[in-house]
């Protein structure tokens, strides 16, 4: 056990690990650039389907998108996780301490993107923030941004819609988290926090970890395995359905029901998204195919945010610390904000 102590005193450059990572990056790039020709080869040469046929189009789409999205998820979640090992909820709390509302809300939403967060930890995080004196509204900005701007959703939007839509999604998520936090703060809802929360007095200093580079890499690899292991099946099924729509549904078939003209499509998309919690991986490929067939961007973004950000399980978890009135305000404020975002993008695009 003495090794670990000596490790801290002489930081060595982990050349072997750097070499391994470079090799992995090269292989990743090679694979990423091979899948398009490979998918076409499988569909049109191996299976001998005629170019332009519906089945051929659908299959080529499927064989291209599945490995592309899995590779993107693997590579980008690794990088995002690596970045996140430099952040912790404890540091975030320290940074938010003493910040006014406004500045605090903006910072909380931004930190919500990079701080490692699992909705199963929403309760200790909420109590810990509120108890250390961080305003309720600022705490909510964090609690809205962290799950909404989620790595799987962002990576898949990037892979299937491109960087512009992924960027719009992140920006809207930030704005919603900031504004919803400000509104909740202004409403002075402290009395709707369960009483036991105010009585908790934590002692202890928490733990601060010092990680070696190797441990950061190991941990990032663990989260890649965990997340990809959890979502890959949804990705495959979602892309299969999307590929079917891509090949078989006629162009602009959906513009009358999911297009800009249909004013009710945005609230309907938000309602539909609520029960689909945590299935972003399966939903995004389908939505991407729908957009190709005439669904409008605002409706699509609103749907996505509702799937990821308005989650019933998280509301149920937070019920432990929030009275029903505050849960209702929390869901209502985010719901309205998402609907406004949807209309806004339908209107400007």
């Amino acid at each position: 056990m003495d090794d670990s102590l000596s490790l801290q005193t002489k930081p060595e450059i982990p050349w072997r690990l750097i070499g391994l990572l470079s090799l992995a990056a090269a292989l990743w790039l090679l694979a990423y650039n091979t899948i398009q020709p490979l998918a076409n080869w499988i569909a049109y040469t191996l299976l001998a389907l005629p170019q332009g046929s519906r089945l051929g189009e659908s299959l080529a789409f499927f064989f291209y998108d599945v490995p592309k999205i899995i590779l993107l998820l693997g590579g980008m979640i690794f990088l995002i996780s690596l970045l996140r090992t430099f952040f912790s909820p404890e540091q975030t709390r320290a940074m938010l301490g003493g910040k006014r509302e406004g500045v605090g809300n903006v910072l909380a939403a931004l930190l919500g993107i990079v701080t490692p967060f699992c909705s199963c930890s929403a309760v200790p995080l909420f109590i810990g923030f509120v108890e250390s004196g961080i305003p309720l509204g600022v705490t909510f900005s964090f609690l809205i941004a962290a799950p909404t701007i989620n790595e799987v959703a962002v990576v898949m939007l990037f892979g299937l819609f491109g960087w512009k839509v992924a960027g719009l999604y992140i920006a809207s998520g930030l704005v919603i988290a900031i504004l919803a936090g400000v509104v909740i703060g202004r409403l002075k809802l402290e009395r709707y926090v369960e009483d036991f929360v105010w009585q908790i007095k934590s002692q202890g200093e928490g733990v601060v970890e010092k990680l070696t580079f190797q441990e950061r890499v190991e941990r990032s690899w663990e989260s890649v395995k965990e997340i990809v292991g959890k979502v890959w099946l949804y990705v495959v099924v979602g892309i299969a359905v999307g590929a079917g729509i891509h090949g078989y549904v006629p162009e602009s078939a959906l513009s009358s029901i999911m297009g800009k003209q249909a004013w009710w499509s945005v609230p309907a998309a938000v309602l539909l998204g609520i029960p689909l919690y945590s299935n972003a991986a399966g939903v995004i490929p389908i939505v991407s195919a729908l957009m190709e067939k005439g669904a409008s961007l605002g409706t699509v973004l609103a749907f996505m945010m509702s799937v990821v950000g308005l989650s019933l399980p998280e509301a149920i978890i937070l019920r432990r610390v929030l009275k029903p009135q505050l849960i209702a305000v929390f869901i209502g404020v985010i719901g309205v904000a998402i609907i406004i975002t949807g209309y806004l993008f339908n209107w400007i695009m």
Binding site: S88, P89, E90, R93, P116, F117, C118, C120, S121, V123, P124, L125, I127, G128, F129, E131, F196, Q199, I200, K201, S202, Q203, G204, E205, G206, V207, E209, E215, E218, R219, R320, V321
Partner: peptide, 30 residues
């Protein structure tokens, strides 16, 4: 019980306490 858990001032679970001292929080150590 959250009231009990929060005595150790953790922000993410799982927390690990050995002989009354918090040694890790929010992660599964290797």
């Amino acid at each position: 019980d959250y009231a009990e858990i929060m005595k150790w001032n953790i922000l993410s679970t799982p927390g690990l306490v050995v002989d009354g001292k918090l040694v890790s929080a929010g992660i599964i150590p290797n």
